[in-house]
Every structure is written in C-alpha cells, then in structure tokens.
Amino acid sequence: MTKGWGREAVGVLLAAVVVVTAAGCGGSADAETKPTAAATKKPGKPVKARWDDTMEWWATHDIGCLDGSAVAEDEEGCAIRVQDYVDDVRKIRGAMNADPDVPKGFYSGAYVIIDRLEKFAGTPAGEGDTEGWLSARPLIWMEGQALSEWIEAHPLR
C-alpha cells in the first residue's frame, strides 16, 4: 500500500512542477528584457589612474602630516589625516580586487605592501588614539611610498 501512495505523491509533485514551470514561462516573446547590472556597469578608471588622482589630491591636501613635516602643529588633525590616507589605500585595494582586466596574481606584490600598511594601521587602538596613529605614521607613509613605486613600475594600462 505504501508503494502505491509513494507513486501518487511523486505524480502529484511532478504535475505541480509542470504547472509552476508553465506559469513562469508566460509573457510575450517580444517583451523587453532589462540588461543585468554587469552588462550596464561602466568600466572603472584604471588602478594607476585612480592612484595618480589620489596622490595628486594628497600632494595638495596633506598639510605635512603624512611626511611628518607639520605633525607637531596639529597632532590630532594629523592623526585623522593618516586614517584618511589608510582609507584611500583601502579604496585602491578595492579597485585592484575589482579590476577585471588583470592576469591572475598581477597585484600580489601590491597586496603584500598594502598588507604591511594595514598591519601598521592596525596598531593604533582606534580613531581616538592620536598617539598610536602618529607612532604608526612613519611606517604607513613608508609603505604608501613603496606602493606608489610599485604602481609606477606596474602600470598595466
């Protein structure tokens, strides 16, 4: 008896699948389909161009915090500048991760540099840790310079 009930249940389920599938196929064949987000996404700026833009901005907005020439004048402001710089490097890493036109492993050298920068940026206790950020600043700055040299040596486009 159980055998017969099992076949009927399978038959009912199969019929339900056919009905759902047929209902999902409705609509006009001429209906306009929307392009997927990937198809409409514009290609982003190349990583080198993004980095150049970032460095150009920092050249005029750093106020001496990253290179250490004016840290004593505004320690708290400089600590915030260092955090902003680290955030900009993180954005560049995101652009590297999202770059569809690179061969596998192309950015691995840059990732090593960014990982070291992240390690130094991870030493301060948090946003309110002015002393920690200022202590880490020379190492963060050094790694930022190394990243700049790496990007210049590997322009890709």
Score class of each variant (00 low, 15 high):
K34Y: 02
W57K: 04
G4M: 08
W141A: 01
W51T: 00
E118D: 07
V47F: 01
D62V: 02
A37K: 11
R93D: 05
R157G: 12
G11R: 09
L139P: 01
R81I: 04
G94F: 08
W141C: 00
D67M: 03
G4Y: 11
I92A: 11
K34M: 09
K104H: 14
A95F: 09
A29C: 11
T40Y: 02
A31M: 12
M55R: 03
R50I: 03
V20P: 12
C65Y: 00
L14T: 10
K45D: 02
A110W: 02
A121F: 03
L117I: 05
K45C: 04
K48V: 05
G144Q: 05
A153F: 07
E143Q: 13
E127M: 14
E73P: 02
A121T: 03
M142Q: 13
M142V: 06
T40K: 07
A79K: 00
H61T: 04
Y85R: 05
R90V: 10
E118K: 15
G105L: 09
P124L: 03
T40E: 08
E127T: 13
P155C: 09
Y85D: 01
N97P: 05
L147E: 02
I113L: 04
D88N: 08
Q145E: 12
V102M: 11
A23F: 11
Q145D: 09
F120Q: 02
W150K: 15
V12F: 10
D52P: 03
E75H: 08
A153N: 14
G11P: 10
G109T: 03
G77W: 06
R7C: 10
T36R: 14
A59N: 03
W51I: 00
D87I: 14
C65A: 05
K45L: 09
R116P: 00
R50A: 01
G4F: 13
P155I: 06
A37D: 03
R93P: 07
G11K: 11
M55E: 01
V10C: 15
M1C: 13
T54Y: 05
G6D: 15
G94A: 12
G27T: 06
W51C: 01
L13I: 15
D52R: 04
W141Q: 03
K34F: 03
A29F: 11
G105W: 04
V20Y: 12
K104L: 10
K41Y: 04
L14C: 14
T21M: 13
G26I: 11
P124V: 03
T130G: 07
R157D: 13
V19D: 11
L147A: 07
P100M: 07
